[in-house]
Computed example of a mutant assay.
Amino acid sequence: MLSVVLATVRARWTHFAGVFLAVALGVGLTASMGLALAATLDAPAELKDRDQEAVFTVNAMLGTAAAVTTFTSVFVVASAFAFAVAQRQREFGLLRTAGATPRQL
């Protein structure tokens, strides 16, 4: 099984590089949103009402942005892997049709 994985990575390294880049950017964006949220949650209690409302608005905006970023990252990674699996499945089907044995795959 490991040989199939390595052969797939060698044959489609650009797909995996793209997925890795998407994961890295998604993790970076999500982490920065989390740090920004943590920084605004520690707002001092002596803020005026207007300032507390601004902090609440920033928290809502950062939370929404973090959720969208996380969803987009997961969607991009899942679709890229699904595409790679579907393409590999098709190749295996064509090889089996041509007479390849399971050992040769």
Score class of each variant (00 low, 15 high):
39 A>D: 13
42 D>K: 05
65 A>S: 15
35 L>Y: 08
37 L>A: 08
52 Q>E: 10
65 A>N: 06
47 L>P: 02
52 Q>S: 07
57 T>K: 12
44 P>W: 05
51 D>L: 02
41 L>A: 14
64 T>F: 11
62 L>A: 01
56 F>R: 15
68 V>E: 05
56 F>P: 02
57 T>E: 14
66 A>F: 02
42 D>V: 06
54 A>S: 10
63 G>Y: 03
47 L>S: 02
45 A>E: 13
41 L>I: 06
67 A>H: 05
68 V>L: 13
63 G>C: 08
63 G>V: 02
35 L>C: 12
51 D>Q: 11
55 V>I: 10
49 D>T: 08
57 T>A: 14
67 A>W: 06
48 K>R: 14
62 L>W: 00
51 D>V: 05
46 E>N: 13
51 D>M: 06
43 A>Y: 01
38 A>V: 04
46 E>A: 12
51 D>C: 01
52 Q>F: 04
42 D>S: 09
48 K>S: 15
65 A>I: 14
53 E>T: 14
45 A>V: 14
48 K>G: 15
39 A>N: 09
56 F>N: 15
43 A>L: 03
56 F>S: 15
55 V>M: 07
53 E>C: 06
64 T>C: 10
38 A>M: 11
61 M>L: 11
53 E>F: 04
62 L>P: 00
57 T>N: 15
47 L>T: 11
48 K>T: 15
63 G>N: 10
61 M>S: 03
65 A>W: 08
